Amino acid sequence: MGSFEGHLLPGTFFLLFGIWWTVVIFDRYFRSLVNSALTKRSQVFKCRTSYTKYESYIKIISTIIGIVLEYWTALDKNYRFTHTGIIELMIHNGYPLPKGCDYLSLSLAIFAEGLLFYFHLHGRTSLDIHVHTLLIISIILSLISVLIEWIYRYHFLSAFCRTVCTLLQGFWFYTVGFILYPPFSQSPVGESHGKQMLITALFCWEIAAIIVLMSFIGSVFYCKNRKILQTNEYSVNYRLCESNVDFKCLVNDTNDKDFNENESHKLSSNGIKSSINHKYSTIVTSDDEI
């Protein structure tokens, strides 16, 4: 990975998957809202590490290409993502694997990536250490987001956070390549404190740019389904682990217990009201007959 191309390859890998996941999660999210609006029933949004088997094939092939081009230096970093792709492919083909093994495999792959990059810093220059430390931070954020999505598998924001972190890794791989191995210059960026602070600011700007990019893609899907959503009521049913959490129009969040108590209270109230109305109508009828 000690070249511009060596950083370009994994950066492209993470960018392509990040953009794909952005399109998929917004498509599934607004499809859930539209189905809820048309059927008048709450829909479920479910997160997955791989949404199609072709995605798993691409993950396996691209990581193998990375291993071949980088050989031993990239073997430890890439073969775990190949293993993740194989597990996802087995799940798509219906193999009876334990529930959550896809998230476990992806978590271990990201953890191994971060661990190897951490010990990759020995004997490096201060600039090299600085940019790779920021890369390790993005890897840690990716690991945390995957673990959160593993727990909150039925929440849109879980998938959103994982996609943000994946895109951040991709963009920062490109940035590291341009900083350490600039293709249009013979020497890397200077190692002054001011330039390192500027690099840190660039890292934060990329996070903001990623959120803007994803928001733009989300707004495209919203405009596509705006008429249906504006003329119909809708709700998405999010599940925490195995329990249901109902988010009515993404605003009122109640757990199962509160939701059931509210529903039973409404039913009992309606029963009392109907009983009173029935008694009142009986009294009125009796008075009329008298």
Score class of each variant (00 low, 15 high):
M1V: 08
M1H: 10
M1K: 06
S3Y: 08
S3N: 08
E5T: 14
L8G: 10
L9N: 12
P10G: 09
L15I: 15
L16R: 11
F17E: 11
W21F: 15
I25E: 07
F26C: 09
Y29P: 06
A37C: 10
R41D: 06
S42C: 00
Q43I: 04
Q43K: 07
K46F: 01
S50W: 03
S56G: 01
I61K: 03
I67E: 05
V68K: 06
V68Q: 04
E70M: 14
W72I: 14
D76W: 12
D76K: 11
N78G: 06
N78S: 14
F81Q: 07
I87M: 07
E88Y: 09
E88S: 09
H92I: 03
P96H: 06
K99D: 11
G100K: 03
L104F: 09
S105L: 04
S107Q: 08
L108Y: 09
A109E: 06
Y118S: 06
F119I: 08
F119P: 00
H120R: 07
L121E: 05
H122M: 06
H122C: 04
G123K: 02
G123W: 08
T125P: 02
S126T: 10
I129Y: 04
H132F: 03
L134M: 03
L135T: 01
I137M: 02
S145P: 05
S145E: 02
S145T: 08
L147R: 09
I151R: 12
H155N: 05
H155A: 06
F156R: 02
R162K: 11
T166G: 09
L167C: 04
L167Q: 06
L168N: 04
F173L: 05
G177Q: 13
F178E: 14
I179N: 04
L180W: 11
P183W: 13
S185G: 03
Q186H: 12
S192Q: 08
G194P: 00
Q196D: 00
Q196N: 09
T200I: 02
F203I: 01
A209E: 05
I210H: 05
Q230D: 03
E233C: 00
S235V: 00
S235M: 00
V245Y: 04
D246I: 13
F247V: 12
N252H: 13
D253C: 15
N255L: 06
D256P: 05
E261F: 14
S264N: 13
S264L: 15
H265N: 12
N270D: 15
G271H: 13
N277L: 15
H278P: 00
T282R: 13
E289D: 14
I290K: 14
